[in-house]
Amino acid sequence: MKKIKEIIVVEGKDDTVAIKRAVNADTIETNGSAVDQAVIDQVRLAQKMRGVIIFTDPDFPGQKIRNKIAEQVSGCKHAFIAKQDALPKSGKGIGVEHASPETIRAALKDAKTMDEEAKEVITQQDLMDAGLIGGPGSRDRREKLGIILKIGFTNGKQLHKRLMMFQISKEEFIKALEQLKQEEGHA
């Protein structure tokens, strides 16, 4: 089983169990979206010593936790899974704990670091021209683009920022749009 050097930040113990089914790794559990200072301090130390991968659920509370930690601990990597990969086989809820070991390994392999001072390579106009903001179906297109680029789902305002922060090149963006068009053509 692959050993992950970084410490993985997850929301709860069920996520830790799912991570340990997929890889050999240590985790820090936030125990929900009310991330307290003790958890932030623990993540800060983990980042300094071994590095951190934030791997929260693909929902609003998961994004809130991700943002809170990223604001206070710089240099963390981010791993994302698509909502459809985080759904339970039966019952309710959405979360990392429902993802397959293969999905978890792929997300961790594709973890990216954000760059807060990244320069604009892809403009708001590029996003509008691509039908990713301000038009019918743009929400679905953003969700699919987030899966292709492995940057998670965002609203229209956040997409531009996330593309910059993850340093997505114009070439990567164009290639992802081409893949998106192909998928839409086969849908």
Rank of each mutant, 00 (worst) to 15 (best):
A70E: 11
A70G: 02
E71D: 14
E71M: 07
Q72S: 10
Q72V: 08
Q72Y: 08
V73L: 07
V73I: 04
V73S: 07
S74A: 13
S74R: 12
S74F: 11
G75C: 08
G75W: 11
C76S: 09
C76R: 08
K77R: 12
K77P: 00
K77W: 01
K77Y: 14
H78Q: 10
H78F: 05
H78P: 09
H78I: 06
A79Y: 04
A79N: 04
A79I: 12
F80C: 10
F80D: 02
A82P: 09
A82W: 02
A82Q: 07
K83D: 03
K83P: 04
Q84N: 15
D85I: 02
D85K: 13
D85W: 04
A86W: 03
A86S: 04
L87A: 13
L87M: 15
L87I: 11
P88K: 01
P88A: 01
K89P: 10
K89H: 13
K89M: 11
S90M: 11
S90E: 14
S90P: 02
S90Q: 11
S90V: 10
K92G: 05
K92A: 08
I94G: 02
I94M: 10
I94V: 15
G95P: 09
G95H: 06
G95V: 02
V96T: 12
V96S: 06
E97M: 05
H98K: 07
A99H: 03
A99M: 09
S100Y: 04
S100D: 01
S100H: 00
E102V: 00
E102C: 00
E102Y: 00
T103E: 04
R105E: 10
R105G: 00
R105Y: 00
R105C: 09
R105K: 14
A106G: 02
A106I: 01
A106Q: 12
A107P: 09
A107N: 09
A107Q: 09
L108D: 11
L108N: 08
K109G: 00
D110M: 14
D110A: 15
D110L: 12
D110F: 10
A111F: 06
A111C: 05
K112C: 06
K112Y: 06
T113G: 11
T113Y: 03
M114K: 15
E116I: 15
E117F: 09
E117D: 14
E117R: 10
E117C: 05
A118R: 05
K119H: 10
K119P: 00
E120M: 12
E120Y: 03
E120A: 07
V121E: 14
I122F: 01
I122M: 03
T123R: 09
T123M: 07
Q124H: 08
Q124S: 11
Q125R: 14
L127I: 05
L127W: 00
M128L: 13
M128E: 15
A130H: 06
A130I: 09
A130E: 06
A130Y: 03
A130G: 11
A130D: 07
G131S: 03
G131Q: 07
G131L: 05
L132V: 10
L132D: 04
L132T: 13
L132S: 06
G134V: 08
G134T: 04
G134R: 10
P136R: 15
P136A: 13
G137L: 04
S138Q: 03
S138Y: 07
D140K: 15
R141N: 12
E143T: 12
E143M: 10
E143W: 01
E143F: 05
K144L: 10
